[in-house]
Nucleic acid binder design. Sequence first.
DNA 1: CGATAGATTGACCTCATTCAACAGGTGTGG
DNA 2: CCACACCTGTTGAATGAGGTCAATCTATCG
Lengths: 214, 214
Amino acid sequence: MFAGALTATQSHPVRTRGVPAPSFLPRARQISLFAPEGEIYAQGEQAGALYRIEFGAVRVYRLHTDGRRQIVAFYFGGETFGLEAGRTHSFFAEATVHTGLSKFANAPGELASQELMTLALRSMLHAQEHLLVVSRQSAVEKLGAFLLDVAERQGDLDHIDLQMTRVDIGEYLGMTIETVSRSFSKLREEGILRLHGAKTVEIIQPEKLVLLCK
Amino acid sequence: MFAGALTATQSHPVRTRGVPAPSFLPRARQISLFAPEGEIYAQGEQAGALYRIEFGAVRVYRLHTDGRRQIVAFYFGGETFGLEAGRTHSFFAEATVHTGLSKFANAPGELASQELMTLALRSMLHAQEHLLVVSRQSAVEKLGAFLLDVAERQGDLDHIDLQMTRVDIGEYLGMTIETVSRSFSKLREEGILRLHGAKTVEIIQPEKLVLLCK
DNA sequence: CGATAGATTGACCTCATTCAACAGGTGTGG
DNA sequence: CCACACCTGTTGAATGAGGTCAATCTATCG
């Protein structure tokens, strides 16, 4: 039945917007499937491989000593992740929903290639953007900036598919699930967005949201 | 008299700990001097060059639309900065104190070199570490983690030379100067550190601080 | 040695967190 | 296909940490 989910999801065109397909990497033989909460790699494991998301979504996070989780990035269909500074992973990577990945063995000699450089700089830029969002003062602004980011990456303002729980969003933005929920409600009450279920968001007044968050 | 400050500072050995000298880059002819608040580059300017700090300190920041400043990194003696994702700078770089820099013209063809890759991955890692610090819950923990970072990079726990104002620290950690000051006071009251003037910090109980922040 | 920017401390207030109860939606088994 | 159970999300009230405004102190530089 997960195989069913696979074909069903794949029948949608995989979004590749923003991140070009890593043509410089050897073609992956097959797609690995991950159930929600499924671990892709763990902190301490040997790094080196790259992963391209065919469908689904992934969270990359780290654990604080007090047990709290800090999600440093989400990745969606068409995006590539897995590049890290050291030889071993400093982060955990897990699927947030049913997810299909292409894995690329990354030969160490290839590390200096232009494309990998681009990927590293992109990751750096993303971390800095994330920093700007998290250091934003108000909870509503944080959530708004997050939603705009996701909408842009998914290429559709009218139909954002969150593919993650309020817990995930909270751990990404550095706030509690209650505050996340309240912020959604505030944006809804102000007529900026509409919720169709908890995970499908429609942005009605993008201008207002941009004005608020950018 | 600034020339005097130059020789005086240079008589101290320039710390190169953590960041190897960029031997892969063409030797710089001379050292450029910057007064406190002096602009090194601005957002929108053409990027490409790298800078090595001979003495002094640099802040790299970005402006929010509401005018607030978000400092994304500090750099100290021996460290190299200036690498960015795009062709133009997304950030501003300014000296926080009297600073001397070696500028390296960065030939575009060299972009794929192993050493630049290392620099990019280091920047990525730093941005992610910074994110973890800022998303830490309490103000005292943020400041403690920051001090440990600076102490490690300067290689001396007993004598941290901050080389920046409370405003800078606040804009780096995402809190007000009052909260920064109060956090310093709390750490002092708990006997973890001692202040000799506002910018010279002596960490008396590093274990306690590590326990609190790491 | 005086002027001035930077830093500290206090009082008050706002807003996110915490704790708790409730509602809704999803998935499972009958 | 329906009913129940559980997980997820929402909302409310009380608490507390950090922001804001303001006054005072002090370190540094001319």
